[in-house]
Design a binder for these strands. Structure first.
Lengths: 141, 141
DNA sequence: CCCCTTTTCCCCACTTTTCCCCACAATCCT
DNA sequence: AGGATTGTGGGGAAAAGTGGGGAAAAGGGG
């Protein structure tokens, strides 16, 4: 389970360190892809990625919108691994898609990790909180 | 069950002691997150947090608002544990969110604990009292 | 086909931050 | 009043963030 919010610099070579707390779950490898619907980079542990891929493969009848999702997911996917310092390299295409400059916000989102630009994360946050309080109360917490 | 209201100092390193009475229930670990809707920090015993997380994980759905909830909840959540002196460290993002300076009010709220700024707690209290009297009367108490 | 240029990747080193432990002072309970 | 527990502060060791240099690989031109 990934939780927390961290800010890191992206160096001129496009490298980003991930929080040490996240590294254990990602050590076996990870897949980067476009965030579904949002302007962010999604980071899946290799195991979670496979589960996701299997779920999509099961559906023999594929509605058009799912087919689009398929293309967006797999077409934009890159494998990644840590260097000796716990950093990964962001592919230029994904970095441009998420509009990440020389700083990024790393966000734990349960089964996956997300990388945001500062501006994008701020905007997302304000929208999310209002809905969150309502749903939580409906869960009885 | 957490009850009572206590005032503590936040030292320059962002550490806060929790009331000794609370420590037994939190000894196995805790999760800090934004008090959804209110400007405070919510502290859940690890067991309570997992119950909440499981309820969300059940829903394999993809709706955008649930995705956003995931982000708001898990993104603002941080694991925490006591140091040798019964203190925890407040993450900077949460501390800023709750506008907690060098003093905080620790409030027992049944299944969870809440950390407030002095001003925020005062304001919340006056509002809460009015509503409480109404609700109690409606219960015939 | 070879060599030179450019890029990528890996490793090293410095600086900063974090975490853990110790110590003093005030308070509570007996 | 005495002892134990708790609030508060600070120092030191360990880990993490950041940047840069050099070797290996890839690409292009002679």
């Amino acid at each position: 389970m990934f939780i927390g919010e961290y800010q890191y610099k992206v160096d001129e070579k496009g490298r980003v360190p991930l929080p040490p707390r996240f590294r254990r779950e990602l050590k076996e490898g990870m897949v980067l892809s476009k965030g579904m619907g949002e302007k962010c980079i999604a980071v899946y542990p290799i195991r979670e990625w496979k589960k996701l891929a299997d779920k999509l493969a099961e559906k023999t009848v594929i509605p058009a919108n799912l087919r689009k999702l398929n293309r967006a997911l797999f077409g934009s996917a890159f494998g990644a691994a840590f260097d000796g310092q716990g950093r990964i390299k962001l592919p230029d295409t994904l970095r441009a898609y998420a509009e990440i400059g020389d700083t990024t916000i790393v966000v734990g989102a349960n089964a996956r990790v997300e990388l945001w630009s500062e501006e994008g994360w701020k905007a997302e946050q304000t929208v999310a909180e209002e809905q969150a309080s309502q749903i939580i109360e409906s869960l009885g917490a």
